[in-house]
Design a protein around this nucleic acid. Structure first.
Length: 840
RNA sequence: GCGAGCGUGGCGGAACGGCAGACGCGCCGGACUUAGGAUCCGGAGCCAUAAGGCGUGGGGGUUCGAGUCCCCCCGCUCGCACCA
């Protein structure tokens, strides 16, 4: 008959669907498990990275289901975004049509992989029934004061024709197309994620213990809390006060200049009044022309412009010259810094270039005579305070605290905390996204669309001409509307939301997506999220460490604050899978090294593809795609097939239920072989269970199954085929197929049926190891002399330390080895090893 | 520059501080074959005919015993990067 994987896979996919085995409901009487994978962007077709991600998730979901948990395992599509617009231009289609075609095609691919999703719950973020709630949630955030508009220099990608959030700028370039990002001064929509910075940070230590350390550290650094103080320099001439933030208030006596970011509002004022206006304007323009990459390159030359103004040092009252400098960032702290060249390398470089005074106020410990003239670089380490009046002699850490205390008391400064995390720039100048539910009224200003008028529908019958301009701007019938407040003519907000908004709560939606109705009052059913949330296991790529995984955490906290969720953290355990590599590089179209999952499924079957991808490397590591490896996996499945088929009659006729250890206590070789197999069967259950559940080492779990298959095949060849042996063989086959089922569900189901399984293996309970089958009767004891292996002795298991020592030392082989040597000591590890230490 | 991680056969990778290299790929040999790029059986870390010796990037240390723990160095990968 042979292994016809196409027929087998189609058959069981149909059966599972007919029996609805993956459809679940919240049931407070059952222990739940929420297994989630990052939903894909419908780019056209699945790539191997998806297949890897979903093979892991499906395997886990199936494993947990067999272990009696009520498993929620859903799938959907993150369907808004740029590529749909680009594709629409390229293929002369509509983003809507292109996206929906892809969704249907990719759904069929996922089904052919055998993933057991509850498809009734599929969400598509471009579906009005979904994005309506994006708008609603945006309005809730607005009500809570978390949404604001601000004119600010923002990151702009020329290629994508839109602004980007901070998290979407990678090394100064667009995260999607790698175009260098430039700053543009625009009025934009922001969400105050920084209100949650502290909780986002605190929970990393207390709540995210099931996350990889790597991701936790990345998030901690991204949020980046700095403790320090704010101090102010008066500028009476312009009736202005310049605020600056510092983490090193202990260096105040070393301030020799103030530097403003070119975008600082004070610079604008100076340009209005100063005789230097033209030069100043030129300098600001020069800085503005720098790309984000140049601007953020720490090694780039620092540019400065000395203004005619000076601020008043808050402590000494001395005048401090004000400069404009390109290395000062407008969006961190206050956009102005106190310059302390002696103790900050950037300030040092700047001061040296422009001849600004350098005053050391900290000296290295033990170096009494520390002068500016001899400094080759800023002294940034801790040391002893000097040139600072009453604080001289204090070590740095003490000085910081003492001086801030004093500064606060005297009114020179105020303690302040700054975060590196910036507010989330949420608007995009793109068409294919969730319309921001606001209206611009000439009379009333920016007015929210009332909730009962949601959704603000995105027109679907739209042709995109080029990326430079959103088609919404050219649709007066959509753009023109009545102001919800005064009823007068008004215009809709034509900008759309960052797609990361959609992906920040889709996992809440899954919990009740199958019951969603247009008349719903809330984005999800609270009873359902109360039961299913949080996600117990989340699986996805590490590239989202500081993107989606921060936004989704913020959303969850917000949803908890408005009473919609009970949990404040969405993902209990996180598994970040590595990339799929081919020929030394990530699979990509431009490198031409992509392997099409559908072709592989055609050629080898879904079970083979799943098996290879889980076996080739541990989940977190990168995985080298190797078609020879795929063939190896395929061969293994063939071997299992042949083993079962060759013994099918015997297995089917042997009674199920296994052979207890007690029935195999005879002394002859056949009994001994049977006991060995029995132990192999049950130790396999133990290690496979542990590898999947605890270690998440799917590759070694599969290796154990291969060993079991090898052992069973060998046993079948050597046996006399008496009743006991056949019963044991059946026990082994059942365990093998049962444990293989989460990995390769179709073939396992088919062979299970072949040996007479009546129930579906997919819902059949995971095997339980028999304790007495795990105990070995004899063990190989390694005998070492001075740490080197000299002999291996077969001994009875369970000997105590002293029994073992005695037995080994009295062994003739060992005695021969030790002849004439003086034994210093003997270490005995029961059931493992004896190390005899002798004099050299 | 700062932070994190990783270095094990020809390759992917296994190893509670206790037999290094499980499992698989590739390779070599054999069987069956008109054939073998199918299947089955066997072999194999390296050096050595063998006894034996040497082996987890390099050097040191702790230990009866180190791939595993500690220190120094080298190399690679990733993240952040003028964050005051």
């Amino acid at each position: 008959m042979g292994y016809d994987f196409h027929a087998v896979e189609a058959k069981w996919q149909r059966v599972w669907k007919e029996r609805g085995v993956f459809e679940v409901e919240a049931d407070p009487g059952k222990r739940k498990f929420y297994c989630l994978e990052m939903f894909p962007y419908p780019s056209g077709a699945l790539h191997m990275g998806h297949v890897r991600n979903y093979s892991m998730g499906d395997m886990l979901a199936r494993f947990l289901r067999k272990n009696g948990l009520n498993v929620l395992y859903p799938m959907g599509f993150d369907a808004f975004g740029m590529p749909a617009e680009n594709a629409a231009i390229k293929y002369k289609t509509k983003p809507h049509d292109w996206t929906w075609n892809n969704i249907e095609y990719m759904t069929s691919q996922l089904k052919s992989l055998g993933c057991g999703y509850d498809w009734r719950r599929r969400v598509e973020s471009c579906n009005p029934i979904y994005y309506r709630w994006n708008q609603w949630l945006f309005l809730q955030m607005h009500k809570k004061g978390l949404v604001y508009r601000k004119q600010a220099p923002v990151n702009w990608c020329e290629t994508c024709g839109t602004v980007l959030a901070n998290e979407q700028v990678v090394s100064g370039a667009c995260w999607r197309c790698e175009t260098p990002v430039v700053k543009k001064n625009l009025e934009q929509w922001f969400i105050k994620i920084t209100d949650y910075a502290q909780e986002l940070l605190d929970n990393i230590d207390t709540e995210l213990t099931g996350w990889p350390d790597r991701v936790r550290i990345m998030q901690r650094n991204w949020i980046g809390r700095s403790d320090g103080a704010k101090l102010s320099f008066a500028l009476p001439e312009l009736d202005y006060t310049i605020d600056a933030f510092t983490t090193r208030f202990d260096t105040v006596f070393g301030i020799t200049f103030i530097a403003l970011a070119p975008e600082h509002e004070l610079v604008g004022r100076m340009i209005e009044r100063s005789p230097q206006a033209d030069d100043m304007r030129d300098f600001v323009a020069k800085c503005a022309a720098q790309s984000a990459i140049e601007r953020s390159d720490a090694s780039a030359e620092k540019l400065g412009f000395k203004t005619q103004y000076s601020g008043v040092h808050p402590v000494t009252g001395a005048p401090v010259p004000i400069w404009i400098a390109n290395y000062v960032l407008m969006d961190y702290g206050t956009g102005a810094i106190m310059g302390v060249p002696a103790h900050d390398q950037r300030d040092f470089d700047f001061a040296r270039k422009y001849g600004i005074e350098i005053i050391p106020v900290i000296r290295p410990e033990g170096e009494a005579d520390f002068r500016a003239e001899s400094m080759k670089a800023a002294f940034e380490e801790d040391g002893i305070t000097c040139n600072s009046g009453q604080f001289d002699g204090l070590p740095t850490q003490k000085a910081i605290q003492a001086m801030i205390d004093w500064g606060e008391e005297k009114g020179y400064c105020k303690r302040e905390v700054n975060f590196r995390l910036r507010d989330w720039l949420i608007s995009r100048q793109r068409y294919w996204g969730t319309p921001i539910p606001f209206v611009h009224c000439p009379k009333c200003g920016v007015v929210p669309v009332p909730e009962d008028q949601l959704p603000v529908l995105l027109p679907e019958d739209v042709t995109v001409q080029d990326v430079g301009r959103s088609p919404l701007l050219d649709m007066p019938e959509w753009l023109n509307t009545a102001c919800p407040q005064c009823g007068g003519p008004a215009k809709r907000e034509a900008e759309t939301m960052d797609t990361f908004f959609c992906s920040s709560w889709y996992f809440d939606r899954y919990c009740s997506a199958h019951k969603a109705k247009p008349s719903d009052a809330l984005p999800f059913d609270k009873a359902d999220t109360d039961y299913w949330m949080p996600v117990d296991q989340y699986i996805g790529g590490i590239e989202h460490a500081c993107l989606h995984l921060i936004y989704a955490r913020f959303f969850t906290m917000f949803l908890a604050d408005i009473g919609l969720l009970k949990v404040r953290e969405p993902f209990t355990n996180l598994l970040t899978q590595g990339m799929v590599i081919k020929d030394g590089a990530k699979m990509s179209k431009s490198l031409g090294n992509v392997v099409d999952p559908t072709e592989m499924i055609q050629k080898y079957g879904a079970d083979t593809v799943r098996l290879f991808i889980l076996f080739a490397s541990p989940p977190q590591n990168d995985l080298d795609w190797s078609e020879q490896g795929v063939e190896g996996a395929h061969r293994f499945l063939w071997r299992v097939w042949r083993f079962v088929e060759d013994n099918a009659d015997a297995l089917r006729n042997a009674p199920s239920g296994g052979v207890p250890m007690s029935e195999m206590s005879g002394d002859d070789a056949a009994f001994s072989a049977a006991r060995t197999l029995k132990r192999k069967i049950h130790s396999t259950i133990v290690s496979v269970t542990r590898d999947i559940e605890k270690e998440k080492q799917f590759n070694t779990a599969i290796a154990r199954l291969m060993e079991l298959a090898n052992a069973l095949t060998a046993f079948a060849k050597g046996m006399r085929s008496d009743k006991l042996e056949l019963r044991l063989l059946r026990e082994g086959a059942e365990v093998l197929l049962n444990c293989l089922s989460p990995f390769c569900p179709h073939i396992a189901e088919e062979l299970w049926e072949m040996i007479g399984g009546k129930e579906l293996l997919t819902t059949f309970p995971w095997p339980v190891p028999e304790e007495d089958a795990l105990v070995s009767e004899s063990v190989v004891i390694v005998v070492q002399v001075n740490g080197k292996v000299r002999a291996r002795l077969n001994m009875k298991a369970g000997l105590s330390e002293s029994e073992l020592r005695e037995a080994v030392l009295s062994d003739p082989q060992v005695q021969e080895r030790l002849a004439g040597k003086k034994i210093v000591k003997t270490i005995a590890v029961p059931d493992k090893l004896v190390n005899v230490v002798v004099e050299a």
